[in-house]
Amino acid sequence: MALDQELVGRSYPPSAVYEVGRGKIAEFAAAIGAADPVHRDADAARAAGYADVIAPPTFAIVLTLEAANVVLDDPQVSLDYSRVVHGEQRFTHHRPIRAGDRLVATTTIEAVRSVAGNDMLTTRVDVATEDGEDVCSATSMLVARGAA
């Protein structure tokens, strides 16, 4: 089923606050094999110029994946989730996410397209501190493959 062009620009209420913990950053860094001490040693992070341990560049997915579910839960977004694959991903960082950040994610539908029977939905999740400092944006393009 084709997605309605009127969905473009639709924005959803901000997520609950996600508090970034040192332990979660260390766990994520270990899972991707990132050995740099700035992910797990606050002194090393400070020596590199950061206020606390910093997250790897793709860590934001931990909160943006969850935040973007608000789109799939929208009854006006008729995307067959069982046929969805991740088509593209972009991260734009204003600064690294760091331990102690209290982050809020706001999701916007950036584009909808239909190509060759496949529906493509692009969402952008803007991540900021609860005080309003922009931290990063994560843009995801999902493809719902048409029934063959």
Binding site: I32, G33, P57, R90, R95, P96
Partner: peptide, 19 residues
């Protein structure tokens, strides 16, 4: 991303990343 951040010497150096 690790290939880029290890080369750059700082995981905070990667400011934009698309695939």
């Amino acid at each position: 991303s690790r290939v880029v951040t290890d080369w750059a010497g700082d995981p905070g150096a990667l400011v934009e990343y698309h695939v």
